[in-house]
Every structure is written in C-alpha cells, then in structure tokens.
Design a protein around this nucleic acid. Structure first.
Length: 600
RNA sequence: GGGCCCGUGGUGUAGUCGGCUAACAUACUGGCCUGUCAAGCCAGAGAUCGCGGGUUCGAGCCCCGUCGGGCCCGCCA
C-alpha cells in the first residue's frame, strides 16, 4: 500500500512544496470537470486534495471516487490561490496536488451520511456503529473520553494512588441491583456474577495495606436502561485508608475541577464546591441531586396556611401532609390559552410522580387585573400576599402548589422545577455546577418488602453521634455518605466505611439479614475486620455520565463506543443471542420455555 | 409491569379536519462544467407510507391489534 507520510490534519502554509502521501476517507468530492477536489479525512483532520488532467491516471481514478472510499494519494503541497483559503480547516491554507491516487477500498452508498447535521434513526446508527463513529461529533466524544480517563489516571497517580484490577468473575450478592450471572463449567450448577462495583474488593485492598487504590472499573447491573444508564458502565473507583469525608471530598473536587479546566471551554469551577445536606437538598429542591444552575427553590406554605379556608389545603395540612410551592417566573404573561396548555402539561409532570393535583395562582403582570386562576378567589388577601412574599413572586409570575406526602411533594415539585427552568430558558449553557450532597440517611424504609434498605450500601458507616439510634430509630441515623452532583446529574457517591466487626454486624441485623446468611455472604468481610482493618472510605464516579456532561450530550450512548439500546440489545452484533445446545449441555443448563403472560 | 411520543424512497423530513398520480432535500445513476469547499446546472431511477385487520365509494391520514424505536415511572445497595 501507499503509506502516509503524515496525517490529514498536519499540513500548514510552511509545508509549501513538500512531497507528501496521505491516507484517509473521501469525505466530500467536488467534481468541476477537468478539476476534482476531494476532502480527505482521518481522525486528525481534513485536507483538500486536487486532481486535474495533468495526472491523467489519477484523474480517471478520482472520477470514480464516492463518499467514504479509502484513498491513498501522493502529491505536492502548495499554497492555495489567493482568496481560495478555507479558514474553516486547520489545513485550509494549502492543498495537495495529486500525482498518484490509489483506491484502497471502495464503499457502497452508506445507510446514512457521515455528517453531524443529519441525525439518523438511532437503531440504524447502532447497527452501523462503525460508520456512526466516523462522524466528527462521535470522534470528538471518543477522543474526549480518552483524554478524560488519561487525566484521571495521571491525577490519581500524582496523588499517590495505585491502579489495581479486581475480578470480573465474582460472587453474587443479595443486596442491590440484579446481577448478571455467568455459569461455571467446572462447577455445574454454580455461577459467577459480574460485579455491580468492586466495592468489597477495594475495601479488602485497604485491609491489605494498599492505602490508596483506584481503578477504571467496568460495572454491570441487570436493570432497565435509561439515557444515563447502560447495563455495563465505567466507574472511577477510589478507596483510601486513614481518611475522613473531607479528604475524599477534597481529592475528588480537585479532580473534577481539573477535568472541566482542561477538557472544556468553561472556566475552572472555584473550590470548594457548594455543599448541601440531604435534608436541605430535599427541602429546598425536592431532589437529592439538585441542579443549582438556577434558583426556583421550593417554598413551604404550611405555616402560612394554618387557618386557611381553602378546603383541599386545609384537609392536606390536617392529614399531616406537606404544602409546598414553586414559582414559575413570567408564566402569568402568557395568554389564557397558552397558560392553560402549560398548566395542563405541568399537571401531567406532577401526576407521573404521584401528585393528585397541581394548584396554581397567577399574579397578573399589571398588578391589577383579576387572576385567571380558578382557585384564587378562595384565598383571602393576606394569604395571597403571604404566598407571594414567601415565593418572592413578582407580578407576571405563577405559583404552583402541591399538597401531598413529603415524598410526593418533593418528587413532583422537584421535577416541575426542572421543567419550568427548561421551558423558561433559565439555564445558561456552558456551566459546570458541582455540588456535594452530604449526611444521607443510613437506611431507607422499603414499603414493598417491609424492611430497612441501605440507602448507599451496607458497608457505609453511621455518624458516630447517631450510632446509638441504629436500633431504636433507624430512620434518624445519618450516614458518613456523600454524593457529588453536576448540573443535576448524580456523578458519583461514596462513604466512609464500617471497619469494625460489631458495627457491621449491627448493620446487617438492621437490614434484616440473619447471622447465618451474613456469615455465608459476607463472612470474608467480617473476618477481615478482625485482622487489622484501617479506617477507610472512598467514592465512585460515573465516567460515562461525567464525559456526557463534559461533551454536552444528552445520553451516555453518545460517549460509549458500542452501547446497547434501551432494550439492552446491541444491534450491530445482535447481542444477546441464543447459544448452541452443546454449549448449554457443557454447563448443565437446560432452557425452559418462558411462561407467556396469562390472558385474563 | 405501566405512561407518553415516533415509524412515509438509502438517509432526513413534509403530507395527519380522508380525494395522492405520495412532495422536498440529500445520497444514488447518467450528462455538462478548471477553483470548489454542504460546489453548481440538466436529466433519471428509487416508497406496496413498519405489519395485520376494520370503517369508507375512496385510507399515508380514522379505528382496533401487533412489531420496532425513543423518553419517562417502577427498578437502578
């Protein structure tokens, strides 16, 4: 083959006169008759090559070139004629006059065009992912991902961390997400599980004295997919010994700051990152991962309405429910028709999160007209004024009210808050608003199973001042747990771990595990805690999500080379797929037909 | 398990109060053209409108079912 002497991103005016050979893909071809331009593309850039009848053989070949042919060209670099430079290309001052052109591989018409401004159906994109990945946008995302991970590795190395691999074939654990299982051929009837995270191994590395560990770790969870959830994903997994929460927060804040500073056009976010307790976050934003790029905080109205005559609010407060409000800036300036449509859409939003209704009060822009809200007349003047003051509602605003259990109010208004911010364009692009959420509850009551679940995971330590209430009032026990949030996306979370056997046993007991089950599943952890375990803690960052945000993408599939679709299918290879009976026989596995849903 | 939205030439879209001989752009094929850079101009081919059924004189459009996809709820220690 005709090997390149440099890449399609290299040539500059100073290279005028050089003999060069380029390899690449025919990105665009412009045939003027007797002169043909081809933009030759590789991952480094685009270079214009020119073919004329002066090189008759090359010209004949160039006439047959189509999009995405792989070419090798030999020729001479020359400055473009005055006025013909292309400032849009790094190589735009020059072009290569071709003396020899070789078609290394032709290409059939493509299933979609290789360009950023035409978005093909995502199934087609995934089926031909190798073509999708040629598009500049995905090339940039994948390159950004490389740089991000490289930067993380260097940062961790500079801070004294060791990168250590942990098993992919490991043991199924009863807690948390569904495991992906791998049958053992050597032990028919037994199974490995793919790790949901390297949690136990990294803690045991602390017991082993490795002190500062990290890993770019692939994790697997067999749960339903979302735009920000793939069944396999990558974490920056970190664990440290002889540290407290502040050490972990400092370390990771610095890493995040560096990522933004070095990989985006945004200014480095200032340290320390803002911090909220879980209780504050839920109260003020209705979310444990608040987007703090805009205001619109939730306001409690309960105390203002203790004597209200408004029936549904009175009833809600009497039942011990919450009444909270959210300001919709400028919404009262919409026409009656538009406002009704908007309210209807917002009712739909809160309904999804369990709210039975959405009340609204408009404050007319002129400060005089009668409100359009059908319920405004039930409030007395003092109440309206108090609500406006509490919500800092100006003339022209609408205030939305949800009365329900604390959980429903938070979820409904928390989500509505995001929706209003988007609709009213309150989020300026290009921001990276980090936030630490701390003091998570240790456990969470599971209504369905009638038991306590670990909010983070069962190895998370309770706050020393709360530990005495683990048995008497578990809901009030706070954990040494922390999450880092970026632009309303949960980037990662961690905790200071339990390192004492008795505390760990109390935790398992609280979670409803019998001593026998605990010994069977977690005996190795409990044993380790009796052989000199240092105080330790750590964190894991979702790398896919981080890069999605750095790249301003809406889905982590845009930053994963070969992602699965929402049905957990990878359309290119056709994964998952059936296997030979012989393979199953070897594993001692027999398939039973999956029961069809019964028809009523 | 559930909710909402979307399936129209290869690709992206329009057409959705029923009248279509299915439109536009691009890609594709052929022709013209020596300075373009999303090149341009001319001509051409290419779609049983995801699939099945129904309503109707007539269905891309309405109804029912089904398949595929996206977003979300549940789920995700």
């Amino acid at each position: 083959m005709l090997k390149r002497t440099l890449t399609c991103g290299d040539l500059r005016a100073a290279d005028d006169g050089r003999q060069v050979t380029l390899n690449g893909w025919a990105y665009r071809r412009r045939d003027h008759g007797n002169i043909i331009f081809i933009d030759l593309r590789d991952r480094y850039g685009v270079t214009q090559v020119v073919i004329t009848q002066d090189a008759a053989e090359a010209y004949a070949a160039a006439e047959k070139v189509r999009s995405e042919f792989v070419l090798a060209v030999r020729g001479t670099v020359r400055l473009r004629p005055a006025g013909m430079e292309n400032p849009g290309l790094d190589t735009g001052d020059v072009e290569v006059v071709v003396s020899e052109l070789v078609v290394e591989n032709a290409a059939k018409p493509l299933p979609f065009e290789i360009r950023d401004d035409v978005e093909a159906n995502e199934y087609t994109r995934l089926k031909y992912r190798y073509l999708d990945l040629r598009r500049p946008r995905l090339q940039e995302n994948i390159i950004l991902r490389h740089r991000s991970v490289k930067l993380m590795r260097d940062y961790m190395d500079e801070h004294g961390f060791l990168e250590i691999e942990t098993p992919i074939l490991t043991k199924s654990t009863p807690e948390g997400a569904r495991d992906y299982l791998v049958p053992s051929r050597v032990h028919p009837g037994k199974f490995y599980a793919l790790p949901q995270s390297p949690q136990q191994f990294k803690q045991l590395l602390m017991v082993a004295g490795f002190d500062r560990y990290f890993q770019i770790a692939r994790c697997f969870r067999d749960e339903d997919l979302r735009a920000d959830r793939q069944p396999e994903f990558t974490q920056l997994d970190v664990e440290m010994s002889f540290v407290d929460q502040e050490d972990v927060i400092d370390l990771i804040s610095g890493l995040c700051r560096q990522q933004v500073a070095e990989l985006t056009a945004a200014a480095a976010p200032s340290l320390p990152f803002p911090r909220l307790t879980y209780a504050e976050a839920m109260d003020r934003y209705g979310s444990d991962k608040p987007d703090i790029r805009f205001g619109l905080e939730l306001q409690n109205l309960g105390d203002l309405l203790s004597d209200t005559g408004v029936g549904f609010l009175k009833a809600a407060l009497a039942a011990g429910n919450q009444v909270k409000a959210l300001r919709g800036p400028g919404l009262a300036t919409l026409s009656g028709q538009k406002l009704r449509e908007r309210v209807k859409a917002y009712e739909e939003v809160v309904r999804i999160y369990g709210a039975k209704g959405l009340a609204w009060l408009d404050f007319p822009a002129d400060g005089e007209s009668a409100p359009k809200s059908p319920i405004a007349k039930f409030f007395n003047t003092d109440e309206l004024a108090a609500i406006a003051e509490r919500c800092q509602a100006e003339p022209g605003d609408v205030v939305f009210i949800v009365a329900d259990t604390g959980k429903v109010v938070a979820a409904a208004l928390g989500e509505l808050r995001l929706r209003i911010a988007r609709d009213q364009d309150l989020i300026a692009p290009g921001q990276f608003a980090f936030l630490w959420v701390v003091d998570f509850p240790l456990v969470d009551w599971n209504e369905d199973e009638n038991r306590w679940d670990a909010m983070h995971h069962p190895f998370t330590s309770p706050k020393p001042e709360d530990i005495d209430r683990m048995e008497s009032d578990p809901a009030s026990v706070r954990a040494n747990a922390y999450d880092i949030v970026l632009n309303g996306v949960e980037l990662g979370g961690g905790s200071i771990r339990i390192h004492q056997r008795d505390v760990q046993e109390r935790m398992f007991k609280l979670l409803g595990h019998s001593p026998e089950a605990t010994a069977l599943k977690f005996g190795h952890m409990l044993d380790a805690f009796e052989f000199g375990t240092p105080p330790h803690g750590g964190i894991a960052l979702g790398i896919d999500r981080f890069i999605m945000l750095l790249a301003s993408e809406q889905s982590i599939r845009e930053v994963v080379a070969f992602p699965k679709n929402q049905q957990a299918v990878e359309p290119m290879t056709g994964t998952p797929d059936v296997v030979d009976t012989a393979q199953l026989d070897m594993l001692g596995i027999r398939l039973v037909s999956i029961e069809k849903k019964e028809t009523p």
